[in-house]
Amino acid sequence: MQLESMYQEIILDHYKNPHARGLREPFDGESFQVNPTCGDEVTLRVKVTDDGKIEDVSYEGQGCSISQASTSVMTDLVIGHSVDEAMTTMDAFTELMQGRGQVEPDEDVLDDGIAFAGVAKYPARVKCALLGWMAFKDALARTSNGVEAG
């Protein structure tokens, strides 16, 4: 196995220097997600503007390099975008992760997210990569603006 195929430089960079980390106020929705097989957890908040734009995503948690880096990449991909765009991106990322390494990622949509293509070949780690995204989806569903997630 090529360890580097899973741990791309991009992933290790995000892991060592995570983007948008920390819990911030104000927020519209918050979610706590946990991976029951390993105990990794994330608390994530979203702030959505009145016209349906994701103004901020903030988070705290503990987890492996894959879950931490994936959450960091996600904030880059969704902050500043509309909820609809974020959902499309999430669908593309989820499809990539569940594709057992058979899905060709679209860099235009996923940007740094394409680095996780190698992770998709390891079923045990797919949950790690999706933990932050699940929290994002759930936090959106809990916003008072009544955003219907996914």
Partner: peptide, 12 residues
Amino acid sequence: VHPHDVSQVLDS
């Protein structure tokens, strides 16, 4: 190094 990452290296 998170335990998951340790085990991934060991697995390799």
